[in-house]
Design a protein around this nucleic acid. Structure first.
Lengths: 128, 128
DNA sequence: CTTGACCTTCTAGTCACTGGAACCTTTATA
DNA sequence: TATAAAGGTTCCAGTGACTAGAAGGTCAAG
């Protein structure tokens, strides 16, 4: 399979797939004309990467997950530890965003939003 | 005031303050020795920027907020529109992160996390 | 007079792509 | 068969918002 077909199949842009090769996540073969040729295992890896990225795992976490995925002697505790670490990162980000939302929505609600210049949002930002 | 003092006062790293000058958010004066000198208005602007950034406004949004802040003839509706736009960005991000959390925590809970290789996290990532 | 703390500029690195240029190969059509 | 469109290739540069580090100038204290 060529890169275009694999891109369609996995939903990943061709640029991204080339980038993943560049940083060593996949190693597709090459045709006589220089075109990349993707085997089924490459397709699986890319789909795996797409899902892991969609769950917010960083590229380096994905690399580790992929290594665990390919290691038939892995311990599931290693995978779980990685996933739990990422899960708490996500939860921390949610908390931060919720804090922002709370503060900002208070300011927004306090603001009349009319033609006058008086604005609690700006005063809220300019002094505590 | 020198950059170090203003950094302490505002809680922003000196590097960040230089960067903000670089991209035109502030225009501190210069002393004869080349050192930046910060007036009270600069201190206020930087504090304003710090709070806006803490609420997740992008630099370009901050630039607009600062312009509105300095425009005594602004309409508060313009500020409110900007803030509401950003608020819905935040809410969208929260939704996405909550989706990730839900999927990932299901996977994590399904995983025994022991010495065995069987892992629902990996199988969940490898096929739908 | 030297030490250390502070300041300056500049370059390059972060993360995960993404856009674009310049060029080559394959496939479809006139 | 000529050619054009649609694919592929590489390489370079840009994104956002800093941050690290190098190489050097300045200032206050002992």
């Amino acid at each position: 399979m060529n890169i275009g077909q694999i891109a369609t199949q996995t939903g990943l842009p061709a640029k991204t797939i080339r980038y993943y090769e560049d940083i060593g996540l996949i190693q597709p073969g090459r045709d006589a004309n220089g075109y990349r040729i993707f085997a089924e295992t490459d397709a699986h890896k890319l789909a795996f990467l797409g899902r892991a990225r969609a769950l917010g795992f960083s590229i380096e976490e994905c690399r580790k997950l992929l290594a665990l995925y390919e290691d038939k002697d892995r311990a599931s505790s290693d995978v779980k530890a990685l996933a739990k670490g990422h899960l708490s990162d996500i939860e921390e980000k949610i908390r931060q965003l919720e804090d922002m939302r709370a503060t900002l929505s208070n300011l927004v609600e306090a603001c009349a939003g009319d033609h006058r210049p008086d604005c609690p949002i700006l005063t809220g930002l300019s002094r505590d």
